[in-house]
Simulated assay, not measured.
Amino acid sequence: MTTVVPGEKIDAQHVNLKLGPGLQQISSNGPSQSKIISTRAGAVNHSANGSRWWIESNSRRYVPALQESVVGAIVQRQGEGYRVDIGSAHSATLDGLAFESATKRNKPNLKVGCLVYARVSLAHKDMDPELECFDAQTHKSEGFGELKGGFVVKCSLKMCRDLLDPKHFLLPLLGSRFPFETAVGMNGRVWINAKQPGQVIAIARCIEAADPDGGGMELKAIKVFLDTLDI
């Protein structure tokens, strides 16, 4: 794993290259002379097939990136859509029709304070980010949409990426103890819901304990910690 600083050139190449947080493609003398540089300090990461690259840095400040999933809160109704707080420098826009099967006569009626699980459909440094609550390929909700009930835990961006990794121990461990629902946003927010309030509190405390910005507990320590909670 390579650690870089802002402005450093990254040797990322792929036929269908997609750049994630911390990377930017710039052109000096046309497309053929373009290069990819880092915009933040951190570790260079890429997907298994090398098509997606990003900079891993343990931060709580979210910078929107295309196709990333986020947990947001409605802060304002705006014409036919909404303004959504996703924890970035600027609030995002969410069109009222950007939901599965939504029409002008049949679309969600979200109120200020409602939570949504959405995907970033536009991320540009000179424009406000835009969201959509369906899968761009299938136009089905695929889990995106309004999040009813539950509780939102705020954590580091690194913790969110860890939770989205199928190999990470925490969510499978909790799922072996009791059933629950979760929606992990790449923006440092995790929505959780369970049958009992004590279970919701337990999940939240375990996420905070495993967070590198918090306790940084590993599997063995989390198991001991779980046994001390009233669930």
Rank of each mutant, 00 (worst) to 15 (best):
L164Y: 00
T138S: 15
K154L: 03
S141N: 11
P64F: 07
A89M: 06
S38L: 03
T103W: 09
A118F: 04
K111M: 12
G72P: 04
L110P: 06
K35F: 15
S69I: 07
S69G: 05
K167L: 13
E130I: 01
G113A: 08
E142P: 00
D135F: 04
E132Y: 02
Q67N: 15
F134K: 11
V153Q: 08
G42N: 00
V112F: 01
E130W: 02
L110S: 06
G79I: 04
G143S: 08
T138H: 09
T138L: 10
G42E: 08
L115W: 12
S91H: 15
S34M: 07
F169N: 04
P64W: 10
S47G: 09
G81K: 08
V84E: 06
K104E: 15
A41D: 04
E132Q: 15
R77F: 01
G96S: 04
P108D: 10
V63I: 13
D128I: 07
V153Y: 06
R60G: 00
K167N: 15
K125S: 13
C133D: 10
T103H: 09
C160A: 07
F169Y: 13
G50V: 02
K140V: 03
E100Y: 05
K167F: 02
I55S: 04
A92Q: 11
N58I: 05
Q67H: 13
I74N: 09
C114Q: 02
E100D: 05
S141I: 03
H90G: 00
